[in-house]
Design a protein around this nucleic acid. Structure first.
Lengths: 366, 366
DNA sequence: CTGAAAGCGCTAACAA
DNA sequence: TTGTTAGCGCTTTCAG
């Protein structure tokens, strides 16, 4: 790897000053065409690649945005890849897949789609996107390190301690995704969790006419869960019911926890007429538990989820759910960031994105 | 946003030199504990965040790695998000989902998993990961820009023009994913495409005993496709058959193209006994075409895919396929990069990762 | 339209 | 153990 050429090398090769080289790259219009061509020729010939660091330092902007997501702490038992050399063994084994998505997938699905949206929108605006997934307790350090190398930070709600976030916010713009506090100090993007769950629950309850209902909630510290529950309760009240009338189970947004909730309800001996779940994974878990037992969905019991992940469209029966525009969340976040970068003094804004209720076979009798 | 404090601010606040501040952050062990604590106190108080650019410039390494993937050019018709203010409308509509994965998903699935592996492995090694998805013809520019801001580049094969890549390789280490040329000038990671397809095809052909076979290939310029085809052909020859004995259809690795191939085969009036597809998406497409027509899979015709994407495990019948360890591809790439960074003079290495044949209902009669 | 020169904030010798 | 001092490679006034 030969020493990389710098502006100086290009400048002397082209017989101009370094300022001119810089101009050719940044504002080509300010340079006479003949000069520009001469410089570009040198650039090509030398294989010049401008240093992002130098540029960032001088220009006081890096041209990159950061996306920070919390991770699972359970990722440490991944097996090592041992051998670097080409693998001469057959390289395959025959197995009959036992199938099934990992639970960690749930989160990944969300992450992947948000990332995709953010990346797209960032690219459109000429930003690079740096991603980091938090692990363990090092969140504050990792995000701080990231903060030092980007022009703005997108952070998933709850992934960084509040105080650390406020500290960082003094140095760099921050947009919070799926924030709980829409009126907070940060720009944020949220989805209509409450309205979506309200609409779904109202439909299910209305359809049912009567009969008892179970609700499988998510973790207590999840703002999403809180909002969805609120939407559910309001739908309940519209029909003259109270939260106390509902059988409540709490999971962790994982398929396994949904499975447990389903088994538990099943074991109680008297199944509710509907099981409303706070997210798709848990809904699928409930379906898993029910499917083995001879219970018919939706005839015996209606099951619903929330999120609109693809797996919910591939289960049998397909899961009725509320679809979140996850890719849009990523795009919206970048848009908010752009706005903030353009006008640092603007009032914090929050964008709420609409959701769609998707009625499918797990709730609709033919 | 007040002017961000620098090492100088921290240094004077703590009553030390900037070198000491730097040391406290980089090599804490080299500093007396009392000094270290004083400095850290100032760091916290001032909310100091080291500038990645300055650091990168001075240290000649950015601490970031880049992952570059090609994208689809079909992403331009995404609708704009219009309104920045909170959405007061109900925020939902009731629709009955028509469902189905987008074709662009195929690629995303691959990308997402590789990205996840790369991010994980990069994080473990203290690197940040910057991602970019190529769009349109600007690949060379985008990747060049990226090259300027990272210490090493992971590039999906074919996503960057060869000459541009060789140019860049003179300035920065490059690892190629899914490379065609294992003996090439770059470090690379590949999967056992050939062996996997060989094993799968040998099994299917052996099981069948006799009867004609169709092969749904991918794009001609895909190294993956080439290798898989080679594996298929070798399995064929082992049974005394020749490529000429097979009905060949060519798709673009998309579900829609698989659907077309399936419909086409169906229309021919005489269905083969097996349809081997070069990837899962096309296999699923073939299944789509067949499922509507009363043809029974696998009894009338066996269908297989390649990749092991999740959707292949959720179809009915579930699709027999060859699973690629996509997350491992990402991780392996980072490992190769680390090795190269540690020893720039090392011989180019390539890691071949094993695949698994997953026999499922689309090929196995009960 | 082009050049000279002053930093941008940090790291890494080298001294002390 | 700590401080001094060069740069790292680029952008950006300010002159010319």
């Amino acid at each position: 790897m030969a020493k990389a050429p710098t502006v100086y090398d290009v400048a002397s090769d082209a017989g101009v000053s370094i300022a001119t080289v810089s101009r050719v790259l940044r504002r080509p219009a300010d340079v006479r065409e003949s000069t520009r061509e001469r410089v570009m020729a040198s650039v090509r010939e030398l294989g010049y690649v401008p240093s992002g660091s130098a540029r960032g330092l001088a220009a006081r902007r890096t041209g990159a945005l950061g996306l920070y997501f919390p991770g699972f702490d359970a990722m440490d038992d991944l097996d090592e890849i041992s051998d670097l050399s080409a693998n001469e063994s057959p390289g395959y084994t025959l197995i009959d897949d036992v199938g099934g998505a990992q639970d960690s997938h749930q989160f990944n699905l969300y992450f992947d789609e948000v990332l995709r949206g953010a990346e797209l929108e960032a690219w459109r605006r000429g930003f690079a996107l740096t991603v980091a997934v938090g692990r363990g307790g090092l969140a504050a350090d990792a995000v701080r390190d990231m903060a030092g190398r980007v022009d703005g930070l997108l952070v998933l709600s709850q992934s960084v301690p509040d105080d650390a976030l406020e500290q960082l916010a003094r140095r760099i713009p921050i947009v919070v995704l799926a924030s709980k506090a829409e009126g907070g100090p940060f720009d944020s993007v949220t989805v209509s969790n409450r309205e979506g769950m309200h609409a779904l629950a109202a439909h299910v309850i209305g359809d049912l006419g009567s009969g008892d209902i179970a609700y499988v909630a998510g973790p207590l510290d999840s703002p999403d869960d809180t909002d969805r529950w609120a939407g559910f309760v309001s739908a309940l009240r519209e029909r003259g019911m109270e939260p106390g009338d509902v059988r409540l189970r709490r999971g962790e947004f994982t398929r396994a926890s949904g499975r447990r909730a389903g088994a538990d309800l099943l074991a109680s001996g008297d199944l509710p007429k509907a099981i409303i779940c706070a997210n798709d994974q848990m809904g699928l878990g409930v379906l898993d538990a029910l499917n083995g037992s001879g219970v018919r969905v939706p005839d015996d019991v209606v099951v619903t989820g929330f999120d609109g992940i693809e797996a919910a469209n591939l289960s049998s029966p397909r899961l009725t759910t509320v679809h979140q525009p996850m890719e849009m969340v990523g795009r919206a976040a970048i848009q908010l960031m752009q706005r903030r970068l353009d006008d640092p003094e603007a009032e914090p804004a929050s964008m709420r994105l609409p959701v769609k209720v998707l009625l499918r076979e797990s709730s609709e009798r033919k």
